[in-house]
Design a protein around this nucleic acid. Sequence first.
DNA 1: TTGCATCCGGTACCCGGGTACAGGCTTATC
DNA 2: GATAAGCCTGTACCCGGGTACCGGATGCAA
Lengths: 152, 152
Amino acid sequence: MTSLPEPEGRAGLRSGEVAGQAGVNIQTLRYYERRGLLAPPDRSLGGHRLYPPGTVALLQVIKAAQRLGFTLDEVAELLDTGRRHPTPDLRQRAIDKIAEVDAKIADLTAIRTALTEVVDARCDSLTNCTCADCPMPMLTIGTRPDLDGDLA
Amino acid sequence: MTSLPEPEGRAGLRSGEVAGQAGVNIQTLRYYERRGLLAPPDRSLGGHRLYPPGTVALLQVIKAAQRLGFTLDEVAELLDTGRRHPTPDLRQRAIDKIAEVDAKIADLTAIRTALTEVVDARCDSLTNCTCADCPMPMLTIGTRPDLDGDLA
DNA sequence: TTGCATCCGGTACCCGGGTACAGGCTTATC
DNA sequence: GATAAGCCTGTACCCGGGTACCGGATGCAA
């Protein structure tokens, strides 16, 4: 059932095979190893990495977690605690992550609103807008002193 | 009308005054100068920068544009084209930026949905989830081969 | 056994938006 | 004229997630 034929009688997959099947760069494998996301694999006599089967799947899990918005540090921690015992932690972290995502969405929505105002008002310049009721001043939160200088 | 008293008879504001009034770091002023957001100001005889009035306001405009989601490169370009003629361009760019923001919001919403599934299903592990109908496999887009290996 | 593909470790670089530090010069005030 | 505060240039570093390049060593098939 393995997607690509692993040569018979070899102890594991080579970096290139893992990288190819997982769709990542070889350098990324070594990077993840440094970051603690991948355990240091066994080596051939000559020092080449031989990855256990399942590594490709693990990489896909990592990528999935990244798509959920977890940082590599967070993924490493989740994998690590999960290695020792089932991680009820994951559920709480996902809940926290939802709050983070909601905050980001709220920020973006505010930005969207401000942009719509700029469009609706037909602003034509960042610094010398000629439109009536220009919303730009609203965007500059506080102190907006006299613009007598050579601004533009 | 200037917010803080600029000493009489001096040719402009010093970096520290501008930075303080605009709420940015002095280094940031030099950084913006390198990036082309601030024109190189006149200098005192000893080589100290003397900023024209309006610089503080310009910095506030830059910060406002950043809050709208424009990168410094984009702001520099908008300021630059605006310097030569009113920039009807700005409106179009704001419209484009709204599309970008919408795309980001859509991404985040998809992530949110996936996270909610993880929470609702009560997943307890990234790699060895024991929950029924675990949504994790859905998250790994494509090929998810056999997990017979020593994944966790 | 030869030849080429692959892999090794180490180091440096990329993106964006700044910040920090060192060592020396200017400006302002007493 | 001394002294402190402020500013100068240049360089290096921070965050996160990788990528690129080098010279040398291995793996594997013909």
